[in-house]
Simulated assay, not measured.
Amino acid sequence: MNTPSTLRRALLASAALLTCLATTGVQAQASYPNRPVRIIVGFPAGTGPDIVARLVAQRLSEGWGGQGVIVDNKPGAAGLIAASEAARAAPDGYTLLLAETGMLSIAPSTYSKLPYDPSRDFAPVSQVVGADFALLVNPQKVAAKNVKEFVSWVQQQKGLFMATFGAGTLGHFGAFKLGDVARIKPEPVHYKTTSDALGGLYSGDVHGVFASVGLSAPQVKSGKLLALGTTGPARASALPEVPTMNEQGYPSLEFSAWFGIVAPARTPPELRARLSADVQKAVQAPEARAKLEEAGFRATGTTAEEFVRIIAADRVTWGKVVAATGFKAD
């Protein structure tokens, strides 16, 4: 039978244990990071996501007193391989993922079964950048100087062949949004990479392509391709002379991708808050913003809560688009 003194001792022991655990947790947060942090990227070196991840890694390392931050490229399956590995990682802040729109907001609608749960397996930390697109055409093949003229031109052709940088990507679903505007069902022509898609544009095999502003800018500035409009909420700093879709009277063609840092679910709230603050500081620094804009991105650096809302809203938006196309990746 427990006596009052025995109960008191048990309660005191429990309180001491809880205090010890709490102190240990605080000390662990204070010493973070004390070994290299890994950022998994689901795309090859040299691509847009890789450029973003490496800039974030460099800035975080500098902010953490030179602690190593490693970018680990795990390309394949439109980023699903990288997302799956990150979802299984220990929730200790030492494995992060540079997520993108397709992984968390589009994949739930295009795949009947995913190797991870986009809603439950990740803790959003901060959206890093927004990535707008440009509608590119070959001026030697297409008689149009703006979106309205392009719509009239494709209606005369009685067909709309659009290159994409892969089935199930924003370029793919952007083609369907353009088809709605032109009142023509598009014929997506899927290429493995954006470079391959641009090759189809040069050869005249396709009429147009939605390519990221970062990849579009050099092609446009060289005069090889023409940008009819950009899809962002404002003109792209890399293509300031190109009007947005909204400016041209096509608000339904306003869409963007994003890249952001997420951690495995069950990452302690205190550590997640620390990571979010550090990523925001890294991205919003003037030098970092300038480099990201030079690469064709819109630097954002949101709070974790804002990023949660962005992911959820895009899941609804793109879910409707995917449903309208009837597309399934599996």
Rank of each mutant, 00 (worst) to 15 (best):
P44S: 07
Q156C: 03
S152M: 10
D330L: 07
Q248I: 13
E305S: 14
P186H: 05
W64V: 09
Q27M: 09
P49L: 04
Q157N: 07
F161D: 11
S152V: 07
G46W: 07
A10C: 02
G199E: 04
A265N: 07
G66I: 07
R120K: 14
L275G: 06
L170R: 03
P36V: 06
A123G: 01
S14G: 00
T24S: 12
H172Y: 15
K192F: 11
A238F: 08
P286A: 10
T110C: 06
P188F: 10
A217Y: 02
S105G: 10
S256M: 13
M245L: 15
T303W: 04
V181R: 06
G63F: 06
T23W: 12
A90K: 14
P233F: 05
N146P: 08
D330Q: 08
K281Q: 12
T325A: 09
A131H: 11
V129N: 00
A107G: 04
A82W: 02
P188R: 06
A197R: 04
F173H: 05
N146T: 03
A131W: 04
F161L: 12
V242Q: 03
L275N: 02
S222L: 06
A288Y: 00
Q219M: 13
A290P: 10
V69P: 02
T193S: 14
D92Y: 10
T47F: 11
P251Y: 10
K192G: 09
E305T: 14
F210Q: 00
A77E: 13
G79Q: 10
V213C: 07
V37M: 08
L17V: 15
N2D: 09
A13E: 05
A285R: 03
V189I: 15
K192Y: 09
A329V: 00
Y116F: 15
G76C: 11
K224Y: 10
Q157K: 15
S105C: 08
V69N: 01
G223F: 08
R9Q: 12
S105F: 09
A197Y: 07
T194S: 12
G166I: 12
S105Y: 07
C20E: 02
K291N: 05
P75L: 07
G102H: 13
A87C: 12
F297G: 08
P75R: 06
A288H: 00
L17G: 05
I261T: 02
T317S: 11
A77C: 02
P91F: 13
D180A: 12
T6D: 14
F133K: 13
P218Y: 07
N146L: 05
L226T: 14
T6C: 06
P268M: 02
G68S: 14
Q140N: 10
V52F: 04
E294G: 12
